[in-house]
């Protein structure tokens, strides 16, 4: 049977109005247990009708409450001792004890429930904190990378910088580096590309050749991964740049047989 057809058949509305047969009622009960949509439609129909009933609300005469409580007491259902009643209260203590026990049980159950919930929330909070810290760290890395890239773009895009391609010498045919040199400000930036890794006790050193003499332009460690632009020591009147492999800490004079790449302006 199609659920929507069943819902729109009118059986639900007729049922809450008491207009259905016992067979139809039984069927609806079965259907509502089986299908949440039908249960939902049934609840809504009930709510609507109850709301309509409530519109007719009318305060009952004040005497009725006492009469009902008295009738219940006579019926043995309750003890006539509540504070809202004016009659004698012989078993107040018994009643209050029952209330206290019920309240305690309820309270303990609630406390237990909340303890479990709280532990759960704590776990969730610490997990979220960790995730937040990770995101912040990641964000810092991205920011730093953007900063570097921006710096690099600034140098590359600046017409005052001359690009010098340093090609690999014999034995380092695949190595290459780029130097950006500013003739006016003398600033030197290095972009190492495909330089081989070095042993622990060695470092790369950049030299500027000025008037035929090598001038130290700074040392740096072999690149790891995609290395950013490195700012090196400023050089005046450079004619050429070269990179040699030197002992860690650098040398005063280049070890010429350790030259890796070189390039003229």
């Amino acid at each position: 049977m199609d659920i929507q057809d069943y819902i729109s058949s009118g059986i639900i509305e007729n049922h809450v109005l008491g207009l259905t047969s016992p067979a139809e009622d039984a069927e609806l009960t079965r259907m509502s247990e089986q299908y949440p949509e039908i249960r939902q439609a049934l609840r809504e129909a009930e709510e609507a009708l109850v709301s309509y009933g409530v519109l007719h609300s009318k305060t009952p005469p004040a005497s009725v409450k006492g009469k009902i409580l008295q009738a219940l007491a006579d019926d043995g259902q309750i003890h006539p001792e509540d504070e809202n009643q004016t009659s004698s209260r012989p078993s107040k203590n018994v009643f209050m004890r029952a209330v206290a026990i019920a309240a305690s049980v309820l309270f303990l159950a609630t406390v237990g429930f909340h303890l479990i919930r709280t532990a759960d929330f704590r776990r969730q909070i610490s997990q979220l904190k960790q995730e937040k810290a990770d995101l912040i760290a990641q964000n810092e890395i991205f920011m730093a990378q953007i900063q570097e890239t921006r710096q690099e773009l600034k140098v590359i895009g600046d017409p005052a910088f001359t690009t010098v391609v340093l090609n690999g010498v014999a034995g380092y045919d695949n190595s290459r580096a780029l130097v950006y040199w500013n003739a006016a400000s003398h600033a030197v930036y290095l972009k190492p590309i495909d330089l081989p890794a070095l042993p622990q006790n060695k470092q790369y050193q950049l030299w500027g050749i000025v008037g035929g003499q090598p001038v130290n332009a700074g040392i740096y460690d072999p690149p790891v991964g995609d290395q950013a632009l490195l700012q090196m020591v400023s050089i005046e009147n450079a004619e050429m740049f070269a990179i040699t492999v030197e002992p860690t800490g650098g040398s005063d004079q280049p070890t010429l047989d350790q030259m890796v790449v070189a390039g003229k302006l």
């Binding site: 009952p60 219940l72 259902q77 509540d82 809202n84």
Partner: peptide, 27 residues
């Protein structure tokens, strides 16, 4: 609380629902 036959709950029930119930019965 009602199932525990708690009288305070019963009072609450009366105070909160008697007007609606009375209204429907009157009708």
């Amino acid at each position: 609380l009602l199932k525990l036959k708690n009288q305070r709950a019963y009072n609450y029930l009366y105070d909160n629902y008697s007007a609606a119930i009375y209204g429907v019965i009157c009708k």
